[in-house]
C-alpha cells in the first residue's frame, strides 16, 4: 500500500540524528553500511566494473565534504547523506505497485524488492538522492535503517542499532525514537537545535542534523603571512638569489 499510513497514537518514529559538528568525514559509516547490507538477508548490494576504470555501485550512505562560510571564516562540513525516513515521503505515494512503503509502527520507509518493477519514479521523487537503482536485479534499493539489526533479538540489546551508528568513531551518529521527547536523540535535537534538510520542500524528514557549532574561541590563521625581509643581509641574499636563479 503506497498511501502513507497515519501513525497510531504512541507509534515510534525511528531515525538518526547526525552531528555535523563532530563528523570527521572518514566514510566508516558508509563502508560499514555497505558491508552489512551486502551480506544481509535482502541480498547483495551490487558493484559494477569493480576493478575497472569506472567502478560504481549501490550505496545507501554517501559522505560529502563541503566548505561553508567565506574566506578567512570558512570551515569544513562533512556531510553523510542517506534516507531520512520522511513523514511526508513522496517516494512512497508515487510508487505504482505498493513496493515502496512506510511502516505505521515505526515510520521506517522500505522497498519490497519482490514487488518493485524498477520504474525508478521513487528516485525522481526524492530530493535527497537517497535511492539507488540495483542494475543487477532491476529493482530500487535504499537504507532500511538496518531493520534486520535493530529488531534482532539474538543480538545484545546494546548492539541493536544501525551499522552506521555502531561504527562511527566520532560518535557523530545517534539512533533512537524521535517521537519520544525524552529519548536521547530527541534531547540532542532539543539541546543542539537539530534541523531538517531542505525544509522548504515539505518532506518533513525524521532524521535530524545537528549544525556545526560556532567556534567559542577566536582563532587566528596558523600561518603568519610572509613579511618582506629588510636590511643589508636581506639585500645580499636577494642578490645571491638573483645570481643563482639566472
Amino acid at each position: 500500500m503506497t498511501q502513507v499510513p497515519t501513525p497510531a497514537p504512541g507509534a515510534r518514529k525511528l531515525g538518526l540524528v547526525i552531528d555535523l559538528d563532530t563528523c570527521v568525514g572518514c566514510h566508516a559509516c558508509a563502508v560499514n553500511c555497505k558491508e552489512w547490507n551486502t551480506g544481509g538477508e535482502a541480498g547483495i548490494l551490487p558493484d559494477y566494473d569493480k576493478y575497472g576504470e569506472q567502478p560504481d555501485g549501490v550505496w545507501f550512505n554517501r559522505i560529502h565534504s563541503y566548505e561553508s562560510g567565506t574566506d578567512g571564516h570558512s570551515r569544513t562540513v562533512n556531510f553523510p547523506r542517506s534516507c531520512l525516513h520522511c513523514e511526508n515521503p513522496l517516494c512512497v505515494t508515487v510508487c505504482p505497485t505498493g513496493a515502496s512503503f512506510k511502516r505505521a509502527e515505526d515510520g521506517i520507509v522500505l522497498i519490497d524488492t519482490d514487488i518493485c518493477i524498477g520504474c525508478k519514479l521513487c528516485s525522481w521523487a526524492c530530493p535527497y538522492g537517497a535511492r539507488e537503482f540495483d542494475e543487477d536485479n532491476g529493482v530500487m534499493r535504499k537504507c532500511t535503517l538496518c531493520i534486520d539489526r535493530i529488531y534482532d533479538e539474538s543480538r545484545p540489546a546494546a548492539e541493536r542499532e544501525p551499522a552506521c551508528v555502531s561504527t562511527c568513531p566520532a560518535k557523530a551518529r545517534h539512533f533512537g525514537d524521535l517521537a519520544d521527547p525524552q529519548s536521547k536523540v530527541s534531547r540532542l535535537v532539543e539541546e543542539r537545535g537539530g534541523v531538517d534538510l531542505l525544509p522548504e520542500l515539505g518532506y518533513r524528514p525524521t532524521n535530524k542534523y545537528l549544525p556545526p557549532r560556532q567556534a567559542q574561541i577566536p582563532t587566528t590563521p596558523r600561518e603568519a603571512p610572509a613579511r618582506p625581509a629588510q636590511g643589508i643581509g636581506a639585500a645580499l641574499l636577494q642578490l645571491l638569489d638573483k645570481a643563482l636563479s639566472r
Binding site: L20, G25, H27, A30, Q54, P55, D56, G57, V58, W59, R62, I63, H64, S65, Y66, E67, S68, G69, T70, T76, V77, F79, R81, S123, Y128, G129, E132, F133, V195, D196, L197, L198, P199, E200, Y209, P211, P212
Partner: peptide
Amino acid sequence: LASAIGLPKDTPARPLDAPHFTENFI
C-alpha cells in the same frame, strides 16, 4: 546547497570532496 545540508539558507557553501570519483546512479 546550504539548505540541503542543514545550514542557514544563505550560507555560502561549496563542495570540497565528492563521495566517489566516478558517476553513480544519482
